[in-house]
Write a protein that binds this DNA or RNA. Structure first.
Lengths: 218, 218, 218, 218
DNA sequence: CATGAATGAGTCTTCATTCAT
DNA sequence: AATGAATGAAGACTCATTCAT
């Protein structure tokens, strides 16, 4: 379980370095999810990757640096998922909004392992400025995109008086909060149902454009 | 700064014991908020309480036990706040719903220190069954109450077809998610605005009973 | 051998702390003399003192701090030896000069263990400013005293034209250099003979006041 | 800075090997002078030489072996300097004595870098028999030569009763001790003045043959 | 009740050495 | 002949826990 999937056989020397780093980051994610942040040791990470003890300090400046790069990777992956979804959604404003919300519940990001790690980093963020910054950036980029889409729909759809910023903030909060359910109540959690909940709220906000089951109207 | 407010002068032996434990729990919360979960040591806790090093293991079985009782206390406090709000709200269903939502944004629970500690425990929850249980319980009790109120309003208000469980889950998730903003973007966070966001979503769900600025209609 | 002599049974709590620190410093000196500077570990020091592994970091901020305080102690001890000799010598200038030179060959400071440790610190001094400072101070205080005595004898004894600073520097250098013989050729080294060598040079510099075997003339 | 001067372009295979070893020894000396003995790593040495990490263990059996050969080289260089000076001095006994003493203050050996390295090795000598032996040999060879010259001058110059061995030992000690000043008080140290101090003592010992400013008399 | 010295297991980190390329 | 990734042993330091006072 802690064993890392071998993506591909490394080719050149330079490729090896990146491959090893990725291996160690993967193992770090596994370990944080399994043992928690405060119980994850470099020995765990090395063992999980099937490598020797000294390996982490060979490829990363320090444990802290490994953790930072792990968070960085997590944030990059998250951003890619919703940006790809957005790209695939095409032009319609409603479709874009639905795609963005739906992206948060894709298995690639919305699974207990990843979510546990996100919460682990959020849990440490207050006292670690670097994590703080990375988490804030993740949110900002997402929020900006969400805000743009909401603003457009409010304008196009004639929802005068609706505060776009509040709607965007609320939808982002909603998914983060639903993720917590996945973490705290894994048995009761259902990805589809969580997405449906998000869509339900979205349909309530934009009743003339979104159906309660998350389809674009009209 | 880390010095704990003296609640009252201790009377009896038993009172002293409880007083000391409370002192240490308060100091633990301070330390987790300040240093993070993984960086909080018993020495920090003792120093923060202005007591000697060995004190924690004298009043608590172990560090783990201190942490568990800290989380317990946090959960109790949270429950008390919304239950008091509910009690004060009286009989009207809408008023009860609004009171419950508003409670999540009261300064006693919605402040950066407490929220940081909540996230710290959530961050460790996956790998520590005891935390998990306590967090799950907190959510369950809250969710049950929220569900009851929503169900009642749906029935009374004629919102047939609206899934009460989804609405309750969504509202709980919304506040947890808004708390994250307080943690990650303390500068930009505004308690009143966050509450307004929650009310906005609530008014969208129950448009005939809640105004966008969180008043009961009719 | 690495076992530290028990000076006296510790009395109070406060006394214990100082006693333990002294114990550890003594053990450090033993270890540096035995294993050398670069091979001395905190485990060696703790073992040598018959104490547990974590003890050093309990009483000293760091290994570096232990080493600094060890050097400090060494310097203090050295200074005390020659200052006591000076005090005991009384008033005569020649007698004072002879006393100071003789002090460098007293068993308390001129023994292979202590000398090895002095050389160990000198060997690290260039790259460690703190050692540098301590070593420079040791030399300065000694040199100032030596200079004062030499200057006085030159004046009183009619050695016009003799450069007091050079004589003082030379005498200090001579003893440091003779110590090296003790380190490098322990078999061939003889404290009395080394002292005699120093006196021989002194008698050559001040022929009318010092006999070749180190007595005051006249 | 740590870059080693390129002596000459290597020719044959064998020459390359020797050239590389010399490069590494030079870099070792630089590093010990800069970082100290205990802080010098093979990575430092390799970096200083602008070569790859594994290089030292390729050209030397072990780190220890590198250090031993470095000390060896240092000792050889020192010996060459005073032996060349002796050769150049010609026949006169006094001149030979003066040449030998003066050699100790030639820039090639009497500079802070080299002296720091000598003291580094002396500092480790007690606990490392191999260093001990090399240091003792260095001293013995020098002492023997010095003794021969002193003995001759005592005989030729009519200094009956003067203990040649003591004089020789003292003069050797004097220079070693003066080197310490260069190490510990680099600002105040002056090569010419140190040499003058040595000559002053020499003139006091052999007043009819050496002037206080280090010239041969008569 | 409370203190704080002491312990020792555990963690991060460094680094000499090896070895496939 | 040279590289540099990898190893694993060892060391400094931390800290929960114990216990004599």
């Amino acid at each position: 379980m802690a064993m890392v999937r071998t993506r591909e056989v490394p080719k050149s020397r330079a490729a090896t370095r990146e491959f090893r780093k990725q291996q160690l980051i993967d193992s770090t994610i596994d370990s944080i999810a399994k043992r928690g942040f405060s119980e994850t040791t470099l020995a765990d990470v090395a063992d999980g990757a099937g490598l020797s003890r000294g390996i982490v300090n060979f490829h990363f400046q320090s444990k802290e640096q490994l953790l930072v790069e792990t968070l960085q990777m997590l944030a990059d992956e998250y951003r890619e998922v919703w940006q790809k979804a957005l790209a695939k959604a095409g032009e319609g404003t409603v479709k874009r909004l639905l795609a963005m919300v739906a992206a948060d519940f894709e298995p690639a990001v919305c699974n207990r392992k990843k979510i546990a790690v996100w919460y682990a980093f959020w849990g440490e963020a207050k006292s670690r400025p670097t994590y703080m910054k990375l988490c804030a950036d993740r949110d900002t980029v997402y929020a900006d995109s969400m805000l743009a889409v909401c603003r457009q729909l409010i304008q196009e759809g004639g929802y005068e008086g609706l505060d776009a910023a509040m709607v965007a903030q609320g939808m982002a909060a909603l998914t983060d909060g639903l993720w917590l359910d996945c973490l705290v109540d894994p048995k009761g959690f259902d990805r589809d149902r969580a997405r449906a909940t998000a869509f339900l709220f979205l349909s309530a906000i934009f009743p003339r454009h979104v159906t309660p089951d998350g389809k674009a109207k009209g």
